[in-house]
């Protein structure tokens, strides 16, 4: 600070109160030693890194769409795959995905929600129940391909289900079960305890309180969790390849014991082909897959918003 402008500078022609008012801002004025620049630079750097996620997403979507868009047509959606790229389509893969997801949902929802209800509402904090909880957390971290190895060993070979939709759906169910349980538990935990108390005070049993009050209140959260897990199952490839679903399938499964293919496997199939036109087919199939996932996620978001206002207190 230079003396003439400092707080103790003499300025006899001004009243002292005004002098003090001038002096104070100077003390609080930002220092010019580069601190501020470093602050701004760091903020900018963090923002740039964080937004790079969006850049990657845009680049990825743009690349895939540019490759796949020209191939997309109604015929592409309704034709079976073919050795000739211009005739090939994804109809069996789409239907296979539908079969797989249908069966997976059928298996996962009752078991997953049931397990969540048990752990949140019925289980006492015993060693066994703590073990179950820990076990679920660990299962959620097991690589998906290990589930494929499990499915191969148990469903395909030991239970002789073969490389069928049923074997695939069972494998997929085990894979997403931990995620469903964790999501459903969170939704159930978010239901205020006063509702349970009110039900008990009327002489309700645990199950009556859960069935009529806790579950309806937790339903939006549970549904969202289930839908997001299903979205994950739609995109999974590795476990299905491991149980041997990667084959040239040109038909649509008619029973749970039929062989099948799904969209991600069809994509893998075409992407790993050495001929260029098939890469474009893969791109088109990816556009369809991402569109399906986007729709599913949008439904989840819609449910979350639609029911948010009903949530208690």
């Amino acid at each position: 600070m230079s003396p003439p402008n400092g707080p103790h500078a003499n300025a006899p022609d001004r009243p002292s109160s005004q002098r003090r008012r001038d002096a104070l801002p100077r003390l609080l004025r930002r220092r010019g030693d580069g601190q501020l620049w470093r602050e701004r630079l760091f903020h900018l750097f963090c923002a740039a890194v964080a937004w790079s996620g969006l850049v990657i997403l845009v680049v990825l979507l743009f690349h895939v769409t540019r490759v796949g868009w020209p191939v997309l047509s109604w015929k592409f959606l309704t034709s079976p795959p073919s050795r000739f790229p211009h005739r090939a389509g994804i109809y069996p893969a789409l239907m296979g995905t539908l079969w797989l997801i249908g069966l997976t949902t059928l298996f996962t929802v009752p078991v997953g929600v049931g397990a969540a209800i048990y752990l949140e509402e019925f289980a006492t904090p015993s060693r066994w129940n703590r073990f179950i909880e820990l076990n679920i957390a660990n299962l959620a971290g097991v690589p998906s391909i290990i589930y494929g190895v499990l499915g191969l060993g148990v469903f395909v070979r030991w239970m002789h289900l073969g490389r069928s939709v049923l074997a695939g759906a069972l494998t997929m169910s085990l894979l997403i079960l931990p995620v469903v349980i964790i999501a459903a538990r969170e939704a159930i935990r978010a239901v205020p305890d006063s509702i349970r108390q009110g039900a008990f005070a009327l002489g309700a049993t645990r199950w009556q309180a859960v069935r009529d009050h806790v579950l309806p209140s937790a339903l939006p959260g549970i549904l969202t969790g289930i839908i997001l897990s299903i979205a994950r199952a739609i995109g999974e490839t590795a476990p299905l390849i491991t149980i041997g679903a990667l084959t040239y399938v040109v038909f649509v499964p008619e029973s749970p014991l039929d062989r099948f293919t799904v969209l991600p496997i069809q994509i893998y199939n075409w992407a790993s082909d050495s001929r260029r036109p098939f890469h474009d087919l893969a791109g088109a199939a990816i556009v369809v897959l991402l569109a399906v996932l986007l729709t599913v996620n949008a439904v989840a978001v819609w449910i979350r918003h639609r029911f948010e206002k009903y949530r208690m207190r």
């Binding site: 997403l57 979205a231 893998y268 791109g283």
Partner: peptide, 20 residues
């Protein structure tokens, strides 16, 4: 946006890696 990024199937990332 990050959730979308996390939800993209790995086979799509594989395609992206190989061809981009």
């Amino acid at each position: 946006i990050l959730e979308i990024l996390a939800g993209i199937p790995t086979v799509v990332y594989g395609y992206f890696a190989l061809y981009f």
